[in-house]
Simulated scan of single mutants.
Amino acid sequence: MYFSELDSGAASGKPALPPRSYEDKALLRAAAALNQELSRAKPAIYWTDMLFSAALGYAGLFVAMTAPSMGVAIAGALAAMLLLYRASSFIHEISHLKPDAVPGFHTVWNLIAGVPLMIPSFMYEGVHTLHHHRARYGTVDDPEYLPLSRMRTGTLAVFMAAAALAPIGFLIRHAVLVPLSLLSPRLRGAVMEKYSALAINPQFRRPAPDAKLRRSWALWEGVASLWSVGLIALVAAGVVPVRAFLVYLAVLSGAMIVNQVRTLVAHLWENDGEEMSITAQYLDSVNVPPPGYLPVLWAPVGLRYHAIHHLLPGLPYHALGEAHRRLIAAMPEGTSYHRANYRSLRAMVMRLVRASRMAGRG
Score class of each variant (00 low, 15 high):
S8P: 10
G13C: 04
A31R: 01
N35I: 10
P43W: 12
D49M: 12
L61C: 12
S69W: 13
G71K: 10
G76E: 05
A80L: 12
M81T: 07
M81K: 00
L84R: 00
Y85P: 02
A87T: 08
H96A: 03
D100V: 07
H106G: 02
T107W: 12
A113P: 00
P116K: 11
I119T: 06
L130N: 04
D142G: 02
P143C: 06
R150C: 00
G154D: 03
F159M: 13
L165R: 14
F170P: 05
H174C: 05
S181H: 07
L182E: 09
L182K: 15
L182F: 14
S184G: 03
E193H: 09
R214L: 15
S228D: 01
A233K: 06
A237V: 02
V240T: 04
L246C: 13
L252W: 06
S253W: 14
A255S: 07
N259F: 05
H267D: 02
E274V: 11
I278G: 00
Y282L: 08
V286H: 03
L297T: 04
G302R: 08
L312R: 04
A319H: 06
G321M: 04
A329F: 10
A330V: 13
G334R: 11
T335C: 02
Y342E: 09
S344F: 07
L352P: 09
R357V: 11
M358T: 12
R361W: 14
